[in-house]
Nucleic acid binder design. Structure first.
Lengths: 203, 203
DNA sequence: GTCTATAGCCAGATAGAC
DNA sequence: GTCTATCTGGCTATAGAC
């Protein structure tokens, strides 16, 4: 069906995502969201009561799209190298489709640190203990070089997420246009995993 | 001298940095900046005319603190491995002292993409061509594994910057307190360079 | 449920006394 | 140069007709 049959709630939520993710909570305007949704400003309040509540709905929805992606690296039932390859490839593909999403999450977490405590308390953050154990085993077995699982985790996330968050900064330095930068991101679907595996593999 | 002899302009600029970097342009309030500076709101306008102009002064000042740090990796007159070691160590030390700065820069660039074009045009971005040449040489000489200089550059920046921008997200996953996370960042002053060098060094 | 009109508040900016 | 008081515009939120 080309004609989407969506409820007003969903329609508003999608419009709000669009605007909030691009502008952030503080700079977003309810009028803009209404325009994006093709409805009246009053409707936003009718369905979501306030800007704050609408924002929270968007944030939760966005976070629940990102978290499972990150979860994959932690609790998949595959070898450590495969996890790294799958995650990098899948995650980069995902973010190419949702370029503003990671920036939005991180931005709003930074503006509102209490969110994190709440999300942790609600078990919205997968625990990395399984990944940690796996890394420690491989280190002990002499498969990978000695490295703290936490540092490896930080490296994997950094290499996959930052190039999107810092895209504008990086294009400024590298001095390429948007098209060429996209090409670099495509390459990273395999490049990043190769880089990480080279860094940790013994022999 | 313990009593700082600073002009009102500098005093305001410092206060504005503090607030803008933590809250971003849109969420920052002139009243808050005035309070932080210990002066009246009207003074801000007397010295900087408008919020927008004050913001631009802050952004330029912040960017000019960050850019030279990044410049170092590109145009230092040392071996590629030393560059990576120096940069990682220096940059992480720097950001530990200015934790909100990279996030602020990236955030405001993302909200205002035209800034980038302006900054590039004003030559505020160092060109990476020297770094590129150096990487290509080392690849040709069989010192490092084949890798595009652009990808290596992205990796270096990502590994050094993201852990600060995404600190809240990462602490959520790793499930450590602020103190333990700081300790991880301290370790990264050498860990990051080791990781990168392991990834690219040929045997 | 959906709209128009408007209340009410808040923040940037300025007027004007000192 | 520095302050208090105030204007003005814009934005969230709601009242109320349909």
């Amino acid at each position: 069906m080309t004609e989407e049959q969506k409820t007003p709630e969903i329609n508003i939520l999608n419009a709000a995502k669009e605007i909030f993710e691009r502008k952030g909570m503080a700079a977003a305007r309810m009028q803009e969201i209404a325009d994006e949704a093709g409805i009246n400003k009053a409707m936003l309040h009718y369905y979501y009561r306030s800007k704050q509540l609408l924002f929270e709905a968007v944030f939760k929805s966005a976070f629940s799209m990102l978290a499972p992606q990150l979860n994959e690296i932690i609790n998949a039932d595959t070898s450590i190298f495969e996890k790294i390859r799958n995650f990098s490839s899948n995650y980069i593909s995902f973010v190419i489709k949702h370029p503003y999403l990671p920036n939005f999450i991180i931005q709003e977490l930074n503006r509102n640190p209490d969110f994190v405590k709440k999300l942790v308390a609600e078990k919205n953050f997968p625990n990395i203990s399984k990944f940690k154990q796996q890394v420690n085993e491989k280190v002990a077995d002499g498969i990978i070089k000695p490295i703290k699982a936490e540092q490896l985790f930080i490296n994997i996330i950094s290499l996959n997420i930052f190039p999107f968050i810092g895209a504008l900064l990086l294009t400024g330095f590298i001095n390429v246009n948007e098209e060429a930068y996209k090409q670099l991101m495509e390459e990273r679907k395999t490049e990043v995993a190769d880089f990480i595996i080279n860094a940790i593999k013994l022999k």
